[in-house]
Structures are given as structure tokens and as C-alpha cells.
């Protein structure tokens, strides 16, 4: 599998309904994340884009059942390993950034403490060395006054600053090969969103990360992604390079999604 870091292969799954029936939600989902590339997984609410991402990270909801398929990371099937093995991959190999960073961070610990804890867990060493690394990571994501910020709690951070801290934790304190970002800028103001996306691109390039960006914002995709996976209603509709998806989409759904994003009349 040279050139491919992760491959989702015929991944299908269902949710248990309240009446104890299995309701299928993912249908033979297949896509590849090329090593070193930035791949966007786009789709609207209910497309299943986040559910696949959560599955890669091994944190799919308890009511979800995988009914077929594999998720190959390097040569390991992530669906076939136990929680202990998965935990050894999280952070070290695969990291994830969530939509609402202030909700994803623990409200009762300072931001610096949380980064330092993750550092110690991943790399060992003493507390003060870990805190120094945490402050350094905050500095690298352009958080002003990182020493003071490290002593603050998540609620004292703005949404944009909290997302920077989250990215510092996921991409710098951890040293993953694969970074998954689930709607990292949704809910942020447009100027802040642009700053955060620039930071993500810069860090990904610097560290040679393979990045998977889950988003509904095709503007961001057009600007920064190399590859695109279009999902709708639990299925992969189309995959291709960003240029191909934007300039020569083959599927009706892709064309409709593009038209809606550009506020054009649907060219179906």
C-alpha cells in the first residue's frame, strides 16, 4: 500500500433503534487517505462523514454496530484491534481535533495542565519539563503570552484560541502521522476561521502530516485540500482530486452540492 496511509474498505454499519432493530446508516464506504496529502470528506448533515472519522479514531457511539468492512492503517485493521492497542495508536499515530474545542477540553483543568498531561503520557519525563513543552506548543500555534495562557481554564479562551490550543495538543504535543479534523472551524467567525485553516495547513506541511478534514464548507476545501471524498446518506458518492471534483464533477449529487455552495441554480 505504498502512498496510502489509511484505507477505509467497504465499511458498513447500523444503529440500534429504540425498538431493537438495526437501522443501516453506512453503506460500503470506501476511501483512501494518501500519505502526506490533505483529504477533505465533505457532505451535509447525516451523510455519515463524522461517523467514519470517529470509527477511524475508535470512538464511534456505543449504539453503532459495524456490519462489514475494514479500516486499514498502515497494515493494521483498526476494527480488529482491542482498546489497549487502539490507545497505543491514539496520539502517537492518529490524532483528532473536534468541532467545539471549548467543549472538547476539560473545563476543570488548566489548558497548560491538559497539554502537559498528554505530553507526559506520550513521551514520559517530569512535570515541569512537560509544562515547558506545553507552553512551547502554545507558542508555536501563535497563542499570545503562552505562559499566562497555560495557567488559564478553557472558559477563559475564545473559541479561536481554544481551537489553537486543541491543535497544539493534537499535532504538536502528540506527534501523529494522521491528523483528523472534524469541522474544526464551524461556529468560528470568518476571519478566525481563515487564521485557523492557515495554521492547520502550515503545521501539516511542516510536520509532513497526512490530514483528513471533515467539513461541509466547500470554500475551505477548494482552497487547501488535495483530494476530496463526497459523501451523501451514508455512501461515498464520488472521490477525486480537488481540481477534478470542482471542475469536472461526474455525479449529480456533487454538482448539486457545488451549486448550492456557490448559491447557483442547481445544474442537475
Amino acid at each position: 500500500m505504498s502512498g496510502v496511509l489509511l484505507e477505509v474498505e467497504n465499511y458498513s454499519g447500523a444503529f440500534w433503534s429504540p425498538t431493537n432493530e438495526l437501522v443501516p446508516v453506512l453503506h460500503q464506504v470506501s476511501y483512501r487517505l494518501k500519505t502526506g496529502a490533505m483529504t477533505a470528506v465533505v457532505g451535509e448533515t447525516g451523510s455519515g462523514k463524522s461517523l467514519v472519522a470517529l470509527s477511524i479514531f475508535g470512538i464511534q457511539p456505543a449504539a453503532f454496530v459495524c456490519t462489514s468492512g475494514r479500516i486499514l492503517y498502515r497494515d493494521t485493521d483498526l476494527l480488529g484491534i482491542d482498546e489497549k492497542e487502539m490507545r497505543s495508536l491514539r496520539g502517537a499515530e492518529i490524532s483528532m481535533v473536534f468541532q467545539d474545542a471549548r467543549a472538547a477540553l476539560n473545563p476543570v483543568f488548566t489548558v497548560g495542565r491538559q497539554l502537559a498531561d498528554v505530553y507526559q503520557l506520550q513521551h514520559g519525563g517530569g512535570r515541569s519539563a512537560a509544562m515547558a513543552k506545553a507552553i512551547e506548543a502554545l507558542r508555536q500555534v501563535s497563542i499570545p503570552e503562552p505562559e499566562r495562557r497555560a495557567r488559564q481554564y478553557p472558559h477563559e479562551f475564545s473559541g479561536g484560541m481554544a481551537q489553537r490550543a486543541m491543535i497544539a495538543m493534537a499535532a504538536l504535543t502528540c506527534r501523529p502521522s494522521l491528523l483528523i479534523l472534524d469541522e474544526p472551524t464551524t461556529g468560528l467567525d470568518v476571519t478566525i476561521q481563515s487564521d485557523i485553516m492557515e495554521l492547520i495547513v502550515e503545521l501539516s506541511r511542516q510536520r509532513g502530516l497526512t490530514t483528513c478534514l471533515i467539513t461541509h464548507d466547500l470554500g475551505v476545501v477548494a482552497e487547501i485540500c488535495d483530494e476530496v471524498v463526497v459523501m451523501n446518506a451514508g455512501r461515498v458518492v464520488e472521490t477525486g482530486t480537488t481540481e477534478a471534483i470542482f471542475t469536472a464533477p461526474t455525479e449529480t449529487y456533487t454538482r448539486r452540492l457545488l451549486a448550492a455552495s456557490q448559491l447557483l441554480e442547481a445544474a442537475a
Binding site: 470568518v190 476571519t191 476561521q193 481563515s194 485553516m197 464548507d217 466547500l218 470554500g219 475551505v220 476545501v221 477548494a222 482552497e223 480537488t242 481540481e243 470542482f246 471542475t247 457545488l258 455552495s261 456557490q262
Partner: peptide, 11 residues
């Protein structure tokens, strides 16, 4: 700051 959902647009 607003990205454009079109290929090849430079801001």
C-alpha cells in the same frame, strides 16, 4: 477572509 467554493480562486 471568506473562502470561495471554486477551483483556482486566489485570495
Amino acid at each position: 477572509a471568506a473562502p470561495v467554493a471554486q477551483w483556482g480562486v486566489k485570495r
